[in-house]
Amino acid sequence: MRVLRLHVNGDCAEVAAPEHWTLLEVLRYKLGLTGSKQGCDKGDCGACTVLIDGVPTLACLSLAATVEGKQITTIEGLVPAHRAAGGEGVDPVQNAFDKTGALQCGFCQPGMILSAKALLAKNPNPSLKEIQESLAGNLCRCTGYTQIYEAVVLAAKGDLA
């Protein structure tokens, strides 16, 4: 056991967890943040993607004991951050995924949205190829990806009325 001080979604969480636990396990089974999905659990699918200091990272392959002191953003953090910044409703990228119907089962969505958030933070006006390349580590077994790319294009345009 180790007492970990994790910065998750702007809060400081002090949590005791076994040293061999992954960040994904600590998020899901200690902090109750089940938005980050446990898909393959070995790096193949991207469903567990979180942002660490703004960078898309696989929580299933990160040891919790190596991410103390870093800013961790999970899907649960987007709405509070959006509202804290004066926004209404949900985060614009979430909104765009809703508008284009970019999901069926939704299992890939948290990871997709976080990969898309990181892309748009760096490159507010990405080309389709750049969107495809940035989401290339997030597998979707349902949609065929088209509406997901459309969602990112829509979020970039900011035309969400």
Binding site: G43, G46, V55, P56, T57, S115, E133, S134, G137
Partner: peptide, 9 residues
């Protein structure tokens, strides 16, 4: 190599 997330890590 692999995917964007894996190249970040």
């Amino acid at each position: 190599v692999s995917s964007p997330q894996l190249r970040n890590m």
